[in-house]
């Protein structure tokens, strides 16, 4: 008995760390009005069982509050960022909700704080629902993916997450906030119409059509998500059902320098970054070795996904 009480006390203390807010909904206020009306009627008619019903409903409202509160507490959230995305694409996070209680949870709404919150007092408008979780079993975990639109390059950090619920009766709206630090890298948007710059003079020049000769084929490697479809080794896939991508080694002299100063006719920094991003993508697709030169940073020519990511990250985090 004492140990059970101590355990309860410990859980109670623990749950204080995660504050849960609760407010009546419009339906909840209407419910309160109904109870008041009923009680007045019961008093007026001296109806004892009318009192009983009014008190039952009052008490039921109170119980609902407890249930509503309980539906949100002892939940732990884990957010893992997924792969980098380009600006305007959806940044994705893996959300894990861990139910640490011996009771099932229902009808949770995951919302995140908008990047540009409105007026301070509009606490409900500041959040945007992004995911619905209908059920988490007792002592169980639920996984889902959060998708958040991106507007700017650089680190996109997930704002505070809000877990909210109207369960069980819709009379109370309870919510709890989880500040987040998880962030996803957002590359600049790949756009711009300028053609890929030509290799520096003195090097061997090749025409575009000749860039992918058979002799450039360097081998197969297991497929990584995001690689273009035309690189997939379909024949090999048909043979043993393993997805691989063809690797090409660019011969020497197919070395490109993607340079900031080549873009003087673009005024806007973001436009320049977008163009450079587009070039990086094109060069990688074409299998060139390429280097990147932007103010403050210079990356030696290289190829491969690691190199591509390094370039794109540099572009994403560029500070003018």
């Amino acid at each position: 008995m004492a140990s059970a009480l101590a355990e309860i006390w410990q859980r109670l203390r623990d749950s204080q760390k995660q504050r849960i807010y609760i407010l009546p909904t419009r339906a909840g206020y209407a419910y309160a009005g109904l109870m008041l009306l009923m009680l007045l009627g019961a008093i007026n008619y001296n109806n004892s069982l009318g009192h009983l019903l009014s008190f039952l409903l009052v008490s039921l409202g109170h119980v609902t509050m407890h249930h509503s509160h309980r539906n949100l507490r002892q939940l732990t959230l884990r957010v893992t960022p997924l792969e980098p995305v380009f600006c305007q694409q959806l940044a994705r996070f893996k959300l894990t909700i861990i139910n640490e209680d011996s009771r099932d949870r229902f009808q949770l709404e995951v919302a995140h704080k908008k990047q540009q919150p409105g007026a301070r007092w509009k606490i409900f408008k500041a959040y945007e629902p992004i995911q619905k979780v209908t059920h988490i079993e007792a002592d169980n975990t639920c996984f889902c993916t959060l998708e958040v639109p991106t507007q700017r390059r650089g680190w996109h950090s997930l704002n505070t997450l809000r877990l909210a619920s109207l369960y069980p009766l819709g009379l109370f709206y309870s919510w709890t906030l989880y500040p987040q630090t998880a962030k996803v890298l957002v590359y600049p948007q790949a756009k711009g119409k300028l053609p890929l710059p030509s290799p520096p003079a003195g090097g061997k020049q090749r025409l575009k059509g000749e860039q992918l000769g058979d002799d450039d084929f360097a081998g197969l490697r297991s497929y990584r998500e995001g690689e273009p479809m035309h690189r997939v080794a379909w024949k090999a896939l048909a043979r043993d059902n393993v997805m691989r991508s063809k690797q090409f080694s660019s011969p020497e002299g197919h070395e490109l320098q993607l340079r900031w100063q080549d873009l003087d006719n673009l005024v806007d920094t973001e436009a320049k970054l977008s163009q450079l991003t587009n070039w990086v993508m094109q060069a990688d697709r074409a299998g060139h070795r390429y280097g990147l030169q932007i103010p403050g940073t210079q990356i030696e020519a290289d190829s491969g996904p690691q190199h591509q990511h390094r370039c794109l990250k540099t572009l994403a985090l560029y500070h003018g």
Partner: peptide, 9 residues
């Protein structure tokens, strides 16, 4: 829930 509401009632 109704059962839990009885004591307060």
């Amino acid at each position: 829930m109704v059962l839990q509401a009885l004591p307060v009632m």
